[in-house]
Design a protein around this nucleic acid. Structure first.
Lengths: 119, 119
DNA sequence: ACCTTACTGAGAACGAGTTATCATTCTCAA
DNA sequence: TTGAGAATGATAACTCGTTCTCAGTAAGGT
């Protein structure tokens, strides 16, 4: 399942099916789920979950990063940009909230849609 | 539905039902959903969606804030702390990602659980 | 070739969350 | 009190993502 490796960001099982269909027509959704579960158990892929979105999967071992979701085409990308939230890791906020982790998703317009809108 | 106003953070419809049951026994889940949809349409409440969580609702007009989810008791709180992601608003990241909004959720241990663990 | 085994694909089944249905109840003015 | 209209509660039904079932197929061994 190296379809995942080529993607610019995490994919839903349905998106994986659609993309993989180009290489391997008549692929079943069940097989996608089966392989995802197997790969996730072996640690080869990890699942990510964004607000208002179905679960997505991406290949593991890409380090700390966050995701960007395009408001127009609804695609999700991985971001390598520095994380402004890292400063909060391990600190205890006023009120007694002890921060141990965080999830950040940025929203906006992706390069593809910006180019399309400009044309 | 001022049950929402008393809560320290957004509630799921089921939580609303449970809390409201104390005041108004024999309240139906259907009524909760109906009122939530009505209130959301009128702008009195907004829905928030956290990763790996069911949809939650909170009263509108509380300004920019984020949420904190306790790893232990799974409760969700509102945070008033300053937002370290605001600096990214409106900027275009390397790669051409134009940021227009963001969602940040912090994870950790809430004051209640910290107190409980200490005891 | 033959058998065994594992994997696959299609669709049914499932579960959680949400919405629709409908008879009942409430509100309130007359 | 009565009647019209709106709101309610219990439950069925629906949606959507995910998992299960099972017959069919490919791969490997002998």
């Amino acid at each position: 399942m190296h379809t995942l490796e080529e993607a610019p960001g995490p994919l839903t099982p349905q998106e994986i099916l659609d993309r993989a269909a180009a290489l391997h027509a008549s692929l079943g959704l069940a097989t996608v789920y089966r392989n995802l579960n197997t790969l996730e158990a072996s640690g080869a892929v990890v699942s990510v979950h964004l607000p208002n979105e179905a679960r997505r999967y991406e290949v593991a071992g890409r380090g700390h990063h966050h995701h960007f979701r395009c408001d127009l085409c609804e695609a999700v990308y991985e971001l390598d940009a520095s994380c402004p939230v890292a400063v909060l890791e391990g600190v205890t906020l006023p009120g007694g909230y002890e921060v141990r982790g965080h999830a950040l998703t940025l929203y906006g317009v992706c390069p593809v849609c910006r180019a399309g809108a400009r044309a």
